[in-house]
């Protein structure tokens, strides 16, 4: 069963690589922001999966909740900034 979760972890890490391509390559700034949102969604899931592997879900879920809320704050800061600044 642990092997299955490790397989899941590796698959999700490769998915992060795809979003990282979008962050680096993205033609506009907003593509990069979307890539960052995708990466943080994967990071939230990875946190819970790691908790399942270690059998300490209650601790790792707190990290995931923190990620989710920070992700929201960061996305709002970026969006506000870009709205006032315009595209570079």
């Amino acid at each position: 069963m642990i092997d299955f979760f490790l397989f899941l972890l590796i698959t999700l890490s490769f998915l992060i690589l795809v979003y990282l391509y979008r962050v680096i390559q993205g033609p506009t700034v907003f593509d990069r922001v979307l890539g960052l949102a995708g990466i943080s969604t994967k990071a939230i899931i990875l946190g819970v999966v790691m908790g399942t592997v270690y059998d300490r879900v209650e601790m790792f879920v707190d990290i995931s909740t923190g990620y989710a809320l920070l992700n929201l704050v960061g996305a709002f800061a970026i969006a506000k900034f870009l709205e006032q600044r315009g595209t570079p």
Partner: peptide, 25 residues
């Protein structure tokens, strides 16, 4: 965490593309 994701993911996408729209794209 799941409910937070359902509530926050559309909000983040909306904030991003509203910024894109207002920035002139």
């Amino acid at each position: 965490v799941l409910v937070l994701l359902i509530l926050l993911n559309p909000v983040i996408a909306h904030a991003t593309i509203r910024a894109a729209y207002r920035a002139g794209l």
